[in-house]
Every structure is written in C-alpha cells, then in structure tokens.
Amino acid sequence: MTHPDQNPSNPESPENPPEALQGPMCRHLRSKGMYVYTDGVDMGFDHDYDNTIYWCLKTMKSFGPDDEMVEKAACCSSDRACYQEI
C-alpha cells in the first residue's frame, strides 16, 4: 500500500537525512500508523503526518514511565530505562 502522502507532485529534497534510529523500536511504542499501514510502509519521516503522534503502552500517554516524551527516535535506545526491545 502506498502511503497517502507519497505524492509525486511534491518531491522533497531534505537537506538532512531522516532521523537516525539507534536500534529497534521499544515494544511499548504505538501510533495510529502502526495499526493502519500494516504492510511495511516506512514510518517516521517528516511528511508522514499520521505517524508523528505516539503513545506508550505502559502509560497510555505521550510520555513514558520515565516522564520523557515518547516518539520513534527516542524509544529505540536501551539508554532509556523503560526501553524494552521489540
């Protein structure tokens, strides 16, 4: 399935590469896109408007058990005490 915003009329030439992920996502990270776009669309780009709002299954909020914000780039590192690899 092509993501809704993959639009050939709007080419993007980002000056910076997409945010680098330090490892696999935490098993408790969730977003709408994970439930809707189930066939492998890469998520996390700035134009991926459905997928920049995250919540944590441990808190069901946009902040994790450590009171830090949850998002893809921040929830992929074992540096975070609450991180659990998927």
Partner: peptide, 9 residues
C-alpha cells in the same frame, strides 16, 4: 499540545 503531529504537507 504535549505531542508532535503538527507537520503538514
């Protein structure tokens, strides 16, 4: 608010 999601095309 206390989340991202304000990006738009």
């Amino acid at each position: 608010g206390v989340a991202r999601g304000a990006q738009f095309p």
